[in-house]
Amino acid sequence: MTTTGTAVSADPANPAAAAAPPGPTGRPGRGRLFQWLFIAPALLYMAAFFGYPLVRNIVMSFQHFTPTTYFTGEAPFNGLDNWRAVLSDQLFTDALWHTAVFTAGSLLGQFTIGLALAVFFSRRFPLSGLVRAVLLLPWLVPMVVSAVVWRRILDQEHGILNTALQAAGLVQDGPPWLSSPSTALFATILVNIWIGIPFNMVILYGGLQEIPRELYEAASLDGASAWRTFRSVTLPVLRPVITVVLVLGFMSTVKILDLILALTSGGPADSTHTLGTVTYQLSFLQLDFGRGAVVGNVLILISAVFAVLYLRANRADFGQGK
């Protein structure tokens, strides 16, 4: 029997015909269509729940948007009036500075203490698992509950902290932790550090467990001290994890609202107002949604800048890993 259908492609005397690719069948286009179909639900979800609110917030910042707008549907454009009003307001300038101080102080304290605890717990000892579990409690408790508890602790007259300081003879009159403009922001930073330490500890502890033990053994054979080993081995290998911790910590800290509202409500004398609390005050207390959208857009812009820096840092780390 002879088969004529494959005679040309199987003919050894015709190598060009044997090497020729099969004719177009439409499969590449069909495969690309299936790829888009698979990611279409995610794209629709992001467009509906992220893209539309973002665009709507930007448009609202250029409108005179009031509660009556929800009934009349009329929100006339007022150009840059909202932006001028917000950027020229001293409260916004102070809130921007408070946000920077609050975020930087919180990240520094959370990361430093979290890294120290992660290094400490990387060495096995009895009951280490139990102690780690106890240290996770601040992370598991709702932030509002933590804020209410700390507000009682930091109360000037009846707080347990001032009572303990007076009993130890360290102070005569308890410091006004939350009732003085000079100490309120510092107190809120300390509370936020306490809340964020477990997150930093857990993520950094996981990163430390992934460092090969051979690197430490090689450093020990070279005679490196503990500090030199930490600086030359631990930190460079842990850099991608540190980047993730700092960026995620920044994204969650820069927009904090409930903690400050429960502790000080932005006071005293606006000394603890941040961009998040100013947005809340303009939008939901003064019902000036246009100006509130402006502050929200500034907050989104700041977060977007750090998100880009995070992606660039990850790309750089990936390139070094290759």
Rank of each mutant, 00 (worst) to 15 (best):
L115I: 11
V134T: 13
S122I: 04
L137Q: 10
V131F: 09
S122C: 06
F125W: 02
F125R: 07
V131I: 15
G109N: 11
S122V: 01
V119D: 10
A118G: 10
R132P: 01
L117K: 08
V134I: 14
M143V: 15
V134D: 05
P138I: 11
F111D: 14
L137D: 15
G114A: 15
P126A: 06
F121S: 04
A116P: 06
L127V: 00
A133L: 08
Q110E: 14
L117H: 07
G129S: 05
T112P: 03
L130W: 05
P126V: 08
L137E: 05
G114S: 09
Q110K: 14
R124Y: 08
L135M: 06
L136S: 01
M143H: 15
V141A: 02
G129I: 00
A118E: 08
R124A: 11
F111L: 15
V134N: 00
L137R: 05
A133D: 08
L130I: 07
T112C: 14
F111N: 13
S122G: 03
L136D: 02
L140R: 05
A133C: 07
L140D: 02
S128G: 01
W139M: 06
S128D: 02
L135C: 06
L115Q: 10
L137Y: 10
S122F: 04
P138H: 02
R123D: 05
F125S: 03
V134Q: 03
G129V: 02
L140T: 09
G114E: 12
V141P: 02
V134E: 06
L117F: 11
S122K: 12
M143I: 15
P138D: 09
S128E: 07
G109H: 12
A116M: 10
P142F: 08
T112G: 14
G114Q: 08
A118W: 09
S122L: 06
R124H: 03
Q110T: 15
V119F: 04
L117A: 06
A118I: 04
R132K: 12
F120G: 01
L135S: 01
V119K: 04
L140N: 05
G114V: 13
F111K: 06
A116I: 15
G109K: 12
V141L: 12
P142N: 07
A116R: 04
V134P: 00
P126I: 07
S128F: 01
L115P: 03
G114H: 11
P126M: 09
L115N: 04
G129A: 02
V141G: 04
P138K: 08
W139K: 09
F125D: 01
G109Y: 12
V131T: 15
S128T: 08
F125M: 09
P138W: 07
L137H: 06
S122H: 13
Q110G: 10
G109D: 12
I113K: 11
A133Y: 04
V141F: 04
R132L: 07
S122E: 13
F125H: 11
P126T: 00
R123E: 05
P138Y: 04
W139R: 08
P126K: 11
L127C: 00
V119Q: 13
F120H: 10
F121H: 06
P142H: 10
Q110P: 09
P138S: 07
R132M: 03
F125I: 00
V131M: 12
F111C: 14
L136K: 02
L117W: 14
L140H: 03
F120N: 00
L127M: 12
L136N: 09
